[in-house]
């Protein structure tokens, strides 16, 4: 089982890649839970789920006991039940959880964060592979939302702006809760020299290189997911990323931690 979260500059391609990755991973007959914590959710689109703005409701949590976490799952709701009830069923068998919503207040996201960290802790460790889509920038990753991840995949484009954000995200390894693996996925590359530019700047393993694919942008204009919109090179590259992840990490048994 793997728990991987995608982070990077806003617009770097996190949602497009993570949603496509989740579906292609699910096509290998593995259970996949897609988790979108962006207050501007983008994963529903890339999964091809026609929902937006349907975050887990505020009342999934109640105030926690003195000295414990601020919010805990409401009595009677356990991790499995939470996923059953709130994870939307999507194409290829992916289940989709949405926590953010830009209308909701900051407190909605905070409750969601508590709910989610409890769910992750208490769910059957071998029930789900988790694929997460974090918001742009460093804020949420640095403030605890990336804790669930074993692998933090930093999406970086061959531009100084994108590389700057990626460099800051590497600092996550300073946290005692850091994901074990911090790796890079290069996006919108137009050749090996772009990949080299990114890997030289970041000095982290580049586990995938996704070319600029105009079909992805075109599909996005019609609100069509990359996998449903005839994107060729993009989908091939994300498929390769899945293969790479399959060969690097044990996706079938979760080591106890």
């Amino acid at each position: 089982m793997i728990r991987i979260a995608f982070a990077g500059k806003g617009g770097s391609g996190k949602s497009s890649i993570s949603g496509t990755f989740a579906r292609l991973l699910a096509r290998t007959d593995r259970p996949v839970l897609a988790v979108d914590s962006d207050p501007l959710p983008g994963m529903a689109y890339s999964l091809g789920i026609p929902v937006d703005d349907r975050p887990a409701p505020d009342d999934v949590v109640v105030e926690g006991p003195e000295g414990g976490p601020r919010w805990v799952l409401r009595p009677g709701l356990d991790a499995g039940g939470f996923i059953d009830q709130y994870a939307e069923a999507g194409p290829d068998g992916v289940r989709y959880l949405q926590f953010g919503n830009s209308w909701g207040h900051w407190s909605t996201l905070q409750r969601g964060q508590h709910a989610w960290s409890q769910v992750v802790k208490e769910m059957d460790p071998n029930a789900w592979n988790v694929v997460g889509d974090l918001p742009g920038g460093t804020r949420q990753a640095m403030f605890g939302w990336a804790k669930y991840a074993d692998v933090l995949a930093i999406v970086a484009e061959p531009t100084p702006k994108s590389i700057q954000v990626a460099k800051r995200l590497r600092n996550i390894t300073k946290a005692d809760w850091s994901p074990d693996h911090v790796v890079v996925v290069a996006n919108r590359v137009s050749g090996p020299e772009d990949v080299r530019r990114i890997s030289d700047a970041l000095e982290r393993p580049v586990i995938g290189a996704v070319p600029d694919d105009p079909a992805v942008t075109a599909a996005d204009k019609q609100a069509v997911a990359p996998l449903n919109g005839g994107a060729g090179p993009f989908v091939d590259a994300v498929a390769e990323l899945v293969t790479q992840v399959e060969s690097t990490y044990d996706l079938d048994i979760r080591s106890s931690d």
Binding site: L40, G42, Y45, D52, S102, W103, D220, K221, A223
Partner: peptide
């Protein structure tokens, strides 16, 4: 940007 998601954020 001329995409539904970007327009949606713009409207908000």
């Amino acid at each position: 940007e001329p995409t539904p998601r970007s327009i949606d954020v713009g409207k908000r």
